[in-house]
Write a protein that binds this DNA or RNA. Structure first.
Lengths: 168, 168
DNA sequence: GAAAATTATTTGAACTCGCAAGTATTGAAG
DNA sequence: CTTCAATACTTGCGAGTTCAAATAATTTTC
């Protein structure tokens, strides 16, 4: 076994901070969504992506990609969301293996009702504690890391809707 | 319901990047540790913190705090680690409610054997893709966010051991 | 000094997710 | 045109996390 390339002081400091952020943020978001909306962070993400998609619909594969989730994870989540009546899944005539997930009216209302509380929570946890300069600096500084982590391919689709912490 | 304070463009961009990082990093670390060491990220964290503690021991409460985990989460993890023989739990004579977790020799060997692969993975996922300047910039820029998220109190203990991505 | 509140930790049940295997359906090879 | 492989998705099982409740010991209160 080769002698490991240990982290230097700065690297270690960054690594520990990344771990803190990656531990706290998802837990905090999950707790708020569960308490106020009865949704998982991932389920919220699924609804949000559908709400922004053309026709409020996306193929399951694409939906899995834009939500950064495995197909399995999405399938489990989709079953739950469908049981609640928030989405529907229909076979594609052209390719009967494929399925298209569509946000129902009820699902639209769900995400529209849930979004404000979610955004408010994100604000109170994150942005209320940061100046505009700090936000800008972090946004720039974190970009290379995101590039390092994200898969390069992008079978994406058209966007332009609601329900993310963006405006209505 | 008040009209929500939506996120502006920069805030939204930062938020989405934070979500990407918070989604990918833990999953990636978990997968490597599970495959190569049969450990959870959290279990690894527990062993690492014990390895750095005075006498390789910490009270459960303190251990929960330094690992950023709930007492319940720690208790479940401790049971698994104890079953594997990597830690032991002993009652405190002074206060017989309290328990002290201690790293066994076997546990010490476990973390020492697991650390190099873990660090190598962290390098290959994160630091190999970043310049020293990018690391330094991100380390500075992320600090205010960490301050915002971390609880202020700190019932910490003495440190100074091994097994974190730090040096041996 | 007994009852009530607090602290330290554990346990059980519910739920989510990852993995491996399973089901269709389509496309490629021969 | 049959066989084999690849695609699109689903499902069952196991494992970890959380929440609420339980246990147990200490400290406070009256």
């Amino acid at each position: 076994m080769e002698t490991p390339r240990w982290l230097n002081e700065t690297e270690l400091a960054l690594w520990m901070r990344l771990q803190v952020v990656s531990e706290y943020l998802p837990a905090s978001i999950d707790a708020q969504l569960r308490a106020d909306a009865g949704l998982t962070r991932y389920e919220y993400h699924v609804l949000a992506m559908l709400s922004e998609a053309e026709g409020r619909s996306l193929p399951m594969s694409t939906l899995a990609f834009v939500t950064n989730g495995s197909l399995s994870r999405l399938s489990h989540a989709a079953r739950r969301l469908e049981q609640e009546g928030w989405i529907e899944r229909t076979r594609v005539p052209a390719d009967r293996r494929a399925m298209i997930a569509t946000l129902t009216d009820s699902g639209w209302e769900k995400i529209v009702r849930s979004a404000p509380g979610h955004v408010e929570h994100v604000r109170s946890e994150v942005f209320d504690h940061l100046t505009a300069e700090q936000v800008a600096a972090l946004e720039v500084a974190i970009e290379p890391l995101v590039q390092a982590l994200l898969p390069t391919e992008c079978p994406a689709e058209g966007m332009g809707g609601v329900a993310h912490p963006a405006q209505d």
